[in-house]
Simulated assay, not measured.
Amino acid sequence: MATRNPRRRVTIADVASHAQVSTTAVSKVIRNATGVSAVTKSRIQASIAELGYRPQAAARGMRGRTFTIGLVLPHIRNLFFADILDGLSGQLDNTGYQAIMVQGGDTRKAERQAVDALLDRQVDGIINVAPLASKNRMEEVAKERPFVVLARHERSAAYDSVYDDDEAGAELVVRHLIELGHRRIAHITHQDNSIAQPADLLHIIRAETYKRIMHEHGLGGEIAIATTFYTEQGGYDGARELLARSPRPTAIFAGADQAAIGALAAVHEAGLRIPQDISIAGYDNTLLAALPNISLTSVDQDGFAMGRMAGRLLLERIEGRVSAARFSVAPKLITRRSTAPPPA
């Protein structure tokens, strides 16, 4: 019985012959290097598209680059991470680079395995979102590959950082609730096994800012914090804990939209109305927050801009920049129907 021969893979030599140029010229276009005229580059790109040529990652790795970037996310359930990925993809457009996304998980061991897998696959650089690893571990990785950390506040000469001004963001939402007239304002915060100084972790910064603003307004005695997780279940559990207090809070500030969604479910389950009986505010301004049936007041930290900047900084590192760079996003409050003055 005759067997079908697999289609022969198009080679760089095939592209060169089709475009009537040297293989060196084709290689330069693939690497986005200089030394090829615009006309020739356009002809080569047309040949690549017509022939369906795809460079082999392993071969490119042996020549020094694979034109791949690793993106480590804690998980893929949070819509805010989708905004980061969209921004990164926009930055990588027309650069020849592709992002490889892996899930770091909930433990340092799982995260380390994810990062090691990317290193083993010879990615040209890594972006780690909300890492659990210690600063020393991240600096070790940065010695092997260009490295950008997103959503941690510590300084390092070995890698770049992109982060939100979490103190300013938390202050915006707590002051908003106080200005509406609320006094019994509660907070849902996060817990994890990050190895870092507390002042460098976003959930600690948001919780400490909440407490500071409450004290500044003479509301220290009303401080109520539920420590759970920035997940729907965490928000649900945290809200149930807070609603059981007597008197119950008239407003809840959840440190992430994902937790706020869970809090909304707990409030509805308790037979309470939003915002007539209790106000809910989140953080991240994800797409869900803007849905008319949710209409969640939230802090916008522009995940798209963060992902885009992380990609830009990583490409600069890949191209040879060695000095450390830091980029902070200025948050803004987006008010919607989930917050209103407290009941009389």
Rank of each mutant, 00 (worst) to 15 (best):
G307D: 12
Y230D: 14
T231R: 13
G282Q: 10
E269A: 13
M309L: 12
D277E: 08
M309P: 01
D300K: 08
Y236F: 15
N285W: 10
S295V: 04
A256F: 03
I261L: 14
E232R: 15
R308H: 14
Y236D: 03
L287M: 11
I280F: 00
R245W: 04
L288R: 07
A254D: 00
Q301F: 11
A289V: 10
P247G: 06
S295G: 12
A256L: 07
L314E: 07
F229K: 14
P249L: 13
V267N: 02
I278H: 01
L272H: 09
L315W: 08
E232I: 09
L315H: 11
D300N: 12
N293D: 15
Q258H: 10
Q301G: 03
Q233W: 09
L287C: 06
N293A: 12
I318S: 02
L243T: 01
F253N: 03
L291F: 10
G320V: 13
P247Y: 10
D300V: 13
G282I: 12
A259G: 14
M309T: 15
R312F: 10
T297C: 08
G235L: 00
T228W: 02
T228M: 09
T297L: 12
L287E: 10
G303S: 07
D277Y: 08
G320C: 15
A260I: 05
G303M: 05
A266K: 00
N293E: 15
G255I: 05
L242W: 01
F229G: 02
A281L: 06
M309H: 04
Y236Q: 07
D302P: 06
G320H: 10
L296Q: 04
R240A: 04
I318E: 03
D277P: 04
L287P: 01
